[in-house]
Simulated assay, not measured.
Amino acid sequence: MIRAAVLGSPIEHSLSPVLHRAAYQELGLVDWSYDRFEIDEAALPGFMAGLGPEWAGLSLTMPLKRAIIPLLDGISDTAAAVEAVNTVVLTEDGRRLGDNTDIPGIVAALHERGVDQVESAAILGAGATASSALAALARICTGEVTVYVRSRARADEMGQWGERLGVAVRIADWSAAADGLGAPLVIATTPAGATDPLTAAVPAVPGTLFDVLYDPWPTTLAAAWSARGGPLLGGLDLLVHQAVLQVEKMTGRSPAPLEVMRQAGAAALASATRRRV
């Protein structure tokens, strides 16, 4: 068997196995397997040292996206731009190469919904996903990006990312986050519940909201946005588009079956919701 897997902690919730296995089945890759492993930063070096030649690729989630970098033979310019790797390809000659499919995944998801360019944008939050969102906006936003933050340290970091990426970034306090909902494109990168108090501020004619959460879905903000008729993308859109790129990089097969993977992910989320109810 040719092996691939997703690593992280916690990892039980990950939909990556569902998406990748659906792709393998559609592509006829019967000798490929994809698993999940609960791995934290301390356990990562040992896990990497134990990988044999049967391994083709790894997906990485938190808290490993930065911790993996010293263990690799090289990383792409995209990954270097935000110092975050979510994809490792293990080559036949033994090299371990890191990449970031979150950034092009965000861009691809937006393109799919007709968002090819915006004059300005707002990012809610300043964590790891926010830096990827900023890098994505560097490709499609022609003007200023306002980042609403709750931490001064995060504010400084996002400002530095903006300088590195060539994006005009304005930092604003989280207390003013409601003002950001009027932007043509709003990317919410905060944990579940953080944006709930903002629902009353959804504009009468909203722009596009990309809320990167997928469980629970819809978020309170996403539901309010949709009720106003605003274009809406969710975490499943990001997850599927970045996974498509991972499958293509790991297997060398292109194009990966986007719709099959999307349907598999949606079915898995619906099943999880029914079990909770």
Score class of each variant (00 low, 15 high):
R170M: 12
A224R: 03
L7Q: 02
Q242H: 13
A138V: 13
L137N: 11
P255Q: 01
P53S: 08
S76F: 15
A109S: 12
M250R: 01
V145I: 15
A84L: 11
G57C: 06
V147A: 00
A49G: 14
R262E: 07
A138Q: 08
G193I: 01
P255A: 02
A268S: 06
S33V: 11
R170V: 13
Y24W: 06
V6L: 09
R95C: 10
L44N: 02
A200H: 08
S271D: 14
S254H: 15
H20S: 00
Y214Q: 06
E92S: 09
M62L: 13
Q117G: 04
A133W: 06
M62V: 14
R154Y: 12
A188S: 15
A5H: 03
S271G: 03
H20Y: 11
L60M: 02
A136M: 15
A126L: 04
M158A: 07
G166W: 04
A49K: 12
L19F: 04
G50N: 00
G127V: 01
T91C: 02
G46R: 00
R170P: 07
A84E: 15
H111I: 13
H241S: 12
L60A: 00
V240S: 01
A43E: 12
H241Q: 13
V82N: 07
L19Q: 03
T251M: 00
I140P: 08
G235R: 06
A266Y: 07
W32H: 01
A270R: 12
R113Q: 13
S33Q: 02
D99W: 07
T208H: 00
E54C: 04
G252Q: 00
L60N: 02
A128I: 03
A84M: 14
